[in-house]
Amino acid sequence: MTTTPAIYVDADACPVKDETFRVAARYGLHVYVVANSLLNLPREPWIERVVVGDALDAADDWIAERAGPDAIVVTADVPLASRCVKAGASVIAPNGKPFSESSVGMALATRNLMQDLREAGVVTGGPRPFTRQDRSAFLGALDRAVNRLRRGR
Protein backbone atom coordinates (compact mmCIF):
# COMPACT_ATOMS: atom_id res chain seq x y z
CA MET A 1 0.00 0.00 0.00
CA THR A 2 1.29 3.47 -0.85
CA THR A 3 0.28 6.71 0.79
CA THR A 4 -0.43 9.93 -1.02
CA PRO A 5 2.72 12.02 -1.29
CA ALA A 6 2.81 15.43 0.37
CA ILE A 7 4.84 18.36 -0.89
CA TYR A 8 6.81 20.58 1.50
CA VAL A 9 7.90 23.93 0.10
CA ASP A 10 10.74 25.89 1.72
CA ALA A 11 8.87 29.00 0.72
CA ASP A 12 10.59 32.21 1.85
CA ALA A 13 12.52 32.67 -1.40
CA CYS A 14 10.96 29.95 -3.56
CA PRO A 15 10.34 31.07 -7.16
CA VAL A 16 8.21 28.02 -8.09
CA LYS A 17 5.32 28.08 -5.63
CA ASP A 18 2.72 28.58 -8.39
CA GLU A 19 4.16 25.68 -10.40
CA THR A 20 4.07 23.49 -7.31
CA PHE A 21 0.41 24.38 -6.75
CA ARG A 22 -0.45 23.50 -10.37
CA VAL A 23 1.15 20.06 -10.12
CA ALA A 24 -0.38 19.41 -6.68
CA ALA A 25 -3.85 20.34 -7.96
CA ARG A 26 -3.45 17.97 -10.92
CA TYR A 27 -2.62 15.03 -8.64
CA GLY A 28 -4.71 15.95 -5.60
CA LEU A 29 -1.74 16.40 -3.26
CA HIS A 30 -1.46 18.34 -0.02
CA VAL A 31 1.11 21.16 -0.03
CA TYR A 32 2.73 22.59 3.09
CA VAL A 33 4.11 26.07 2.42
CA VAL A 34 6.62 26.69 5.19
CA ALA A 35 7.95 30.20 5.81
CA ASN A 36 9.22 32.52 8.52
CA SER A 37 6.52 35.07 7.74
CA LEU A 38 3.00 35.24 6.39
CA LEU A 39 2.83 34.74 2.61
CA ASN A 40 -0.05 35.50 0.28
CA LEU A 41 -1.25 32.10 -0.98
CA PRO A 42 -4.26 30.77 -2.85
CA ARG A 43 -7.10 29.77 -0.53
CA GLU A 44 -7.37 26.06 -1.22
CA PRO A 45 -8.05 23.32 1.32
CA TRP A 46 -5.03 21.35 0.08
CA ILE A 47 -2.58 24.27 0.55
CA GLU A 48 -1.54 24.65 4.17
CA ARG A 49 0.33 27.75 5.30
CA VAL A 50 2.88 27.04 8.05
CA VAL A 51 4.47 30.08 9.69
CA VAL A 52 7.32 28.95 11.92
CA GLY A 53 8.59 32.26 13.29
CA ASP A 54 11.96 33.87 12.74
CA ALA A 55 14.26 31.54 14.68
CA LEU A 56 17.33 30.47 12.70
CA ASP A 57 16.54 27.34 10.64
CA ALA A 58 12.99 27.08 12.04
CA ALA A 59 11.49 26.39 8.60
CA ASP A 60 14.23 23.88 7.79
CA ASP A 61 13.70 22.08 11.09
CA TRP A 62 9.92 21.93 10.61
CA ILE A 63 10.30 20.42 7.13
CA ALA A 64 13.12 18.03 8.04
CA GLU A 65 11.11 16.66 10.99
CA ARG A 66 8.30 15.67 8.63
CA ALA A 67 10.20 14.65 5.50
CA GLY A 68 10.15 10.95 4.82
CA PRO A 69 9.78 8.43 2.00
CA ASP A 70 6.39 9.77 0.88
CA ALA A 71 7.43 13.43 0.91
CA ILE A 72 8.61 15.71 -1.84
CA VAL A 73 10.62 18.69 -0.62
CA VAL A 74 11.15 21.79 -2.75
CA THR A 75 14.19 23.74 -1.60
CA ALA A 76 17.37 25.43 -2.78
CA ASP A 77 18.82 25.10 0.73
CA VAL A 78 21.54 22.44 0.45
CA PRO A 79 21.81 21.59 4.18
CA LEU A 80 18.03 21.11 4.30
CA ALA A 81 18.17 19.02 1.13
CA SER A 82 20.83 16.82 2.73
CA ARG A 83 18.71 16.25 5.84
CA CYS A 84 15.64 15.39 3.78
CA VAL A 85 17.48 13.05 1.40
CA LYS A 86 18.84 11.19 4.44
CA ALA A 87 15.24 10.84 5.67
CA GLY A 88 14.26 9.25 2.35
CA ALA A 89 12.38 12.19 0.83
CA SER A 90 12.47 13.19 -2.83
CA VAL A 91 14.13 16.61 -2.93
CA ILE A 92 14.03 19.01 -5.87
CA ALA A 93 15.68 22.39 -6.27
CA PRO A 94 13.62 25.18 -7.88
CA ASN A 95 15.76 24.86 -11.03
CA GLY A 96 14.59 21.25 -11.41
CA LYS A 97 17.76 19.53 -10.25
CA PRO A 98 16.95 16.64 -7.97
CA PHE A 99 19.07 16.06 -4.92
CA SER A 100 20.06 12.43 -4.33
CA GLU A 101 22.33 10.58 -1.94
CA SER A 102 25.05 10.70 -4.58
CA SER A 103 24.69 14.39 -5.46
CA VAL A 104 23.90 16.04 -2.15
CA GLY A 105 27.38 15.47 -0.69
CA MET A 106 29.04 17.33 -3.56
CA ALA A 107 26.44 20.10 -3.40
CA LEU A 108 27.09 20.49 0.33
CA ALA A 109 30.87 20.59 -0.18
CA THR A 110 30.51 23.22 -2.93
CA ARG A 111 28.18 25.31 -0.77
CA ASN A 112 30.61 25.18 2.15
CA LEU A 113 33.55 26.10 -0.09
CA MET A 114 31.68 29.09 -1.52
CA GLN A 115 30.69 30.21 1.97
CA ASP A 116 34.32 29.99 3.12
CA LEU A 117 35.43 32.04 0.10
CA ARG A 118 32.81 34.72 0.78
CA GLU A 119 33.83 34.88 4.44
CA ALA A 120 37.46 35.30 3.33
CA GLY A 121 36.44 38.32 1.22
CA VAL A 122 36.62 36.67 -2.19
CA VAL A 123 33.92 38.02 -4.49
CA THR A 124 32.11 34.97 -5.83
CA GLY A 125 29.17 36.64 -7.56
CA GLY A 126 25.76 35.24 -6.89
CA PRO A 127 23.61 32.54 -8.32
CA ARG A 128 22.78 32.81 -11.98
CA PRO A 129 19.40 34.36 -12.80
CA PHE A 130 16.37 32.07 -12.64
CA THR A 131 15.13 31.31 -16.19
CA ARG A 132 12.08 29.95 -17.99
CA GLN A 133 14.13 26.82 -18.69
CA ASP A 134 14.66 26.40 -14.92
CA ARG A 135 10.92 26.72 -14.37
CA SER A 136 10.21 24.15 -17.07
CA ALA A 137 12.86 21.75 -15.71
CA PHE A 138 11.29 22.09 -12.25
CA LEU A 139 7.81 21.24 -13.56
CA GLY A 140 9.17 18.11 -15.25
CA ALA A 141 11.17 17.04 -12.20
CA LEU A 142 8.22 17.54 -9.85
CA ASP A 143 5.90 15.61 -12.15
CA ARG A 144 8.39 12.72 -12.32
CA ALA A 145 8.83 12.71 -8.53
CA VAL A 146 5.07 12.60 -7.95
CA ASN A 147 4.61 9.76 -10.41
CA ARG A 148 7.52 7.81 -8.95
CA LEU A 149 6.04 8.08 -5.45
CA ARG A 150 2.54 7.23 -6.67
CA ARG A 151 3.92 4.05 -8.27
CA GLY A 152 5.58 3.16 -4.97
CA ARG A 153 9.05 4.30 -6.06
Rank of each mutant, 00 (worst) to 15 (best):
G96C: 06
T20W: 01
V52W: 11
A64F: 04
E101F: 11
T4G: 12
S37H: 09
G125S: 15
T20D: 02
L117K: 09
G88D: 03
L139Y: 08
Y8R: 00
D61V: 15
R144Q: 08
M114G: 01
T4C: 12
G68P: 01
R22G: 02
P79I: 11
N112A: 10
A58M: 06
P15M: 11
E48M: 03
A64I: 03
K97N: 14
P42Q: 09
K17M: 11
A13T: 13
V16F: 10
R132N: 13
A55H: 05
G125E: 14
D70K: 05
L39R: 10
N36W: 05
V31Y: 04
R118K: 15
L142A: 04
G28H: 10
G28M: 08
L39S: 09
A76S: 05
F138A: 06
P69H: 12
G125D: 13
M114Y: 05
V104G: 01
R26W: 11
V123S: 15
T3F: 05
G126K: 15
Q133S: 12
E65I: 08
A58H: 04
L41K: 04
P5G: 05
P42A: 12
C14K: 07
V31T: 07
Y32L: 02
T3H: 07
A71V: 02
D134W: 09
G53V: 12
D134T: 07
L29V: 09
P98D: 03
L149M: 00
A107N: 08
V91W: 00
P129C: 03
R111G: 07
A93V: 00
L56V: 14
S102V: 12
W46A: 14
F99R: 00
E44R: 13
P15L: 12
C14L: 04
I72K: 01
D77C: 06
F99Y: 04
R49W: 03
F130N: 11
C84V: 03
A59W: 13
R132T: 13
Q133H: 11
A55S: 06
A6H: 05
V34S: 01
N112I: 05
M114S: 03
R83K: 14
A89K: 03
G152Q: 02
V52C: 10
G96D: 03
D77I: 06
H30L: 15
M1R: 10
F138L: 09
E19S: 14
W62K: 09
G68H: 07
R148G: 09
R43D: 15
V9F: 02
L113G: 07
R118G: 08
P79Y: 11
C84S: 04
G121H: 04
A64D: 00
I47T: 03
E19Q: 14
I63Q: 02
R22Y: 04
K86A: 14
I63N: 00
R128M: 14
L149N: 00
D134Q: 10
R66W: 01
M114V: 06
F138R: 07
A6N: 08
